[in-house]
């Protein structure tokens, strides 16, 4: 059980690093998905600890996966809209006050 928490902690740290340091919008999105997966791992693991027959943790993991999919759909739509307007997906160079 501790092992699961260690792994999800490590993955969460990696995801955080990605979110903080990447500037490309698509890699940012990938980092966020890594964060969500780390959380889902915990949900599934804790589902086994308390009342496994109720499946609460697994239901939450499914909700998490659904929301991650929606987030990817909307996030990528935003990225594409931004790309069409600014010609870049580098979040550091998106600037409404350009000349």
């Amino acid at each position: 059980m501790t092992l699961v928490l260690v792994f999800s902690g490590l993955l969460f740290a990696i995801g955080t690093y990605g979110v903080l340091t990447r500037r490309n919008a698509i890699t940012l999105l990938i980092s966020v998905e890594i964060l969500m997966n780390a959380a889902n791992l915990n949900f599934v693991a804790f589902s086994r600890l308390w009342e496994p027959e109720l499946m609460t943790g697994q239901v939450f993991a499914l909700v998490g996966i659904s929301i991650a999919a929606c987030e990817a759909a909307v996030g990528l739509a935003l990225i594409l809209a931004v790309f069409r307007r600014f010609g870049t997906t580098d979040v550091g160079r998106i600037d409404f006050l350009r000349g």
């Binding site: 501790t2 740290a13 955080t16 903080l20």
Partner: peptide
């Protein structure tokens, strides 16, 4: 791809978060 200039900061925060989570585990 371009990478942000704040890589050091990012690493520190990530270490802190990861360390805290693993310690909590």
């Amino acid at each position: 791809l371009a990478v942000s200039e704040h890589r050091g900061l990012g690493a520190v925060v990530a270490y802190a978060v990861g360390g805290w989570l693993v310690w909590a585990a």
